[in-house]
Design a protein around this nucleic acid. Sequence first.
DNA 1: AATTAAATTTAGACAAATCTAAAAATTGAT
DNA 2: ATCAATTTTTAGATTTGTCTAAATTTAATT
Lengths: 217, 217
Amino acid sequence: MTRSEENYLKTIFHLGGGRDASITTNAIAEQMETKPSSVTDMARKLAEKGLLHYKKYQGVSLTDLGTKKALSIIRKHRLWEVFLVEKLDFTWDEVHEVAEQLEHIKSEKLIDKLDELLDFPKYDPHGDPIPTKDGKFMERDKKLLSEMPISASGVCVGVKDSSVPFLKFLDKNKIALGNTIKVLEKEDFDQSLRIQMEGKDFRISHQIASNLYVKTE
Amino acid sequence: MTRSEENYLKTIFHLGGGRDASITTNAIAEQMETKPSSVTDMARKLAEKGLLHYKKYQGVSLTDLGTKKALSIIRKHRLWEVFLVEKLDFTWDEVHEVAEQLEHIKSEKLIDKLDELLDFPKYDPHGDPIPTKDGKFMERDKKLLSEMPISASGVCVGVKDSSVPFLKFLDKNKIALGNTIKVLEKEDFDQSLRIQMEGKDFRISHQIASNLYVKTE
DNA sequence: AATTAAATTTAGACAAATCTAAAAATTGAT
DNA sequence: ATCAATTTTTAGATTTGTCTAAATTTAATT
């Protein structure tokens, strides 16, 4: 599989192209910052190879084989992200770009050994689950911080928005995975929250709270 | 720089294209398992970019910039090899192929941090020196085992032939970098050696002895 | 110095992945 | 159910890196 083919499969998976949910040419093109006509060409090619279901004008979905390949790439991407953060002290916002390159390295032994080095992590630095070798993974039971009731507390386990600006914001404010957060007060007026985290009191906007995932036991 | 361009620079460097030693189109083609006509095309392109000196029919050599780029790729390759052996338990013969892929990952921070994680190694698993960030490196003072006099001893620091079959042979016979080797006897008839290594006595052929580097203090 | 052999370059073609512009199919609004 | 708007596909072109076959240059031999 070429790098480009792998990127298409990954993108289609992320757009929900598993099961049979048909993904449109346009959606893929937009996500990948390419043109719909290029997507059509690639859809043909990947269908030819048995990785996609594709009927003209009907959109695209992953076959079982395609899903398997997509998960394998996502597994690699997320393991490399853990490596970058845990072993090389990268910050949240720095890992994605490099992992985009590393995910295409071809060596089964490499990824197995990397998994072992990292002690078989289940989640990546954004809190997203890492598929196992045989393509299984568990979405964590989590909810948005903005949906927690007053006085409830939980552990920060992930982000909804993983854009660089948001991740940088979190870094700057020392909001990190694993931190325990308690909701002290909710402001009706602007839905901002007062929270306690690592001993300190914070006020955070609704926009932040609705992009942070928390695990509530 | 594309992956292909990087591979050309690396190959030309390895063929001795530094200084002004002119490397022939054919030599490059043979080394890279491609055709001379393809090399000509690329030579033009790289000369255009200021990375090579190239005059039609006169062969090719690296410019200062080209040398710098080549060394940067070699640095990455060798650091990744150390990583694979030290952190992921790869054997000598397994590292090259994967490092060929990893050397093209683009991230300065990645390679700096990797260097740090590995504790700034000076030599790769084959005993070859790792260029520093600014392109300096020291060839180690070493000699071939076959050139050592009787009763001299030294530490195994590298291989001349780094083909997979040879490296596998060394692995199988527990001949590893860092081992201390003493020459006990040289057989005039076939130039085989009797050596002492890690407590045990061995007999090794001239072919082996003439592909193992030893450091003699 | 001429001729042959070898190395190198040129010319033209191809595959992969992309693009633009035009054509075709689908959607959805009335 | 029709027609306009939108989406998708087709057709043809482009770029990168490669190839083959033919032409050219250099090197070697006599």
